[in-house]
Design a protein around this nucleic acid. Structure first.
Lengths: 134, 134
DNA sequence: CGGTATCCCGGCCGATACTG
DNA sequence: CAGTATCGGCCGGGATACCG
């Protein structure tokens, strides 16, 4: 009934293949793994959070980019936005069920990288010593 | 002896904290999760691969960006480059041990997203119906 | 085949100002 | 507090040409 989307490019048996150029899953992957997306999702895994609190958790993000990132994640169903019409306004962001599962997988990657940065730094040193010295 | 790098910003008990602006782990995360980085690492998990074969696996990547991406990943110790001085030249790229562990965590995320794109698409539809219609 | 060099455009992103 | 609006720089990234 449903027409599959990305089966043409890779001989895939799944309807969505991120390796195919035109697949919508690639956009979602970019939202989730993007420069600010990954940090935003990761920060929200600690619990619901207001806008400016989130800005503080994600060190270095601007208002504009955080707002933009949150809209994309909300549209994809990763983040839920709950606004209270009080004054001053209070808006809480939290992960959806889907978002929590995404965050867990993302944090597994992040924590693994953090725990192995010594190896990465060593590799960078060796690479630069060979390439940079010449 | 070693001076920790990112402990100032977040009251962390780990030397590397990706949520801190100046932490080197953030760069590595961006290399691995970047637009082409994630797809390149994911594609290499299927096995060693030559340059142009890799270009075909990662649908849509240009020579320049693939080259640039591979250099960053090689420097970080995620990818190993093996060149044979034959004619015509033959160069094989493959994941390092570190890279394979990164790839597994990345693919867990990718496959989860691919398997839940129906939910994402539904959320997008609902979001656009509410926002776009007004 | 496996790249590098160069050009150049769109849009990512930060800074600032303003609104409810 | 929680954003939106606008401007502008700079760089990601595609196209093309060229090299070993």
């Amino acid at each position: 009934m449903e027409s599959p989307v990305c089966t043409e490019a890779a001989g895939a048996d799944l309807p969505f293949d991120v390796f195919a150029r035109a697949c919508p899953s690639r956009e979602t992957l970019e939202h989730v793994t993007g420069r600010w997306g990954s940090l935003t999702v990761g920060a929200l895994r600690e619990g619901p959070c207001r806008f400016n609190e989130l800005r503080r958790r994600v060190d270095g993000v601007s208002e504009k980019m955080l707002s933009q990132t949150l809209h994309a994640l909300e549209r994809d169903g990763i983040v839920h936005r709950e606004a209270q019409p009080t004054n001053p306004p209070r808006v809480d962001y939290e992960l959806t069920t889907l978002g929590r599962e995404v965050a867990d997988r993302l944090l597994a990657l992040i924590h693994f990288l953090e725990g192995n940065m010594d190896q990465v730094m060593a590799s960078r040193g060796a690479y630069d010593a060979e390439r940079g010295g010449r």
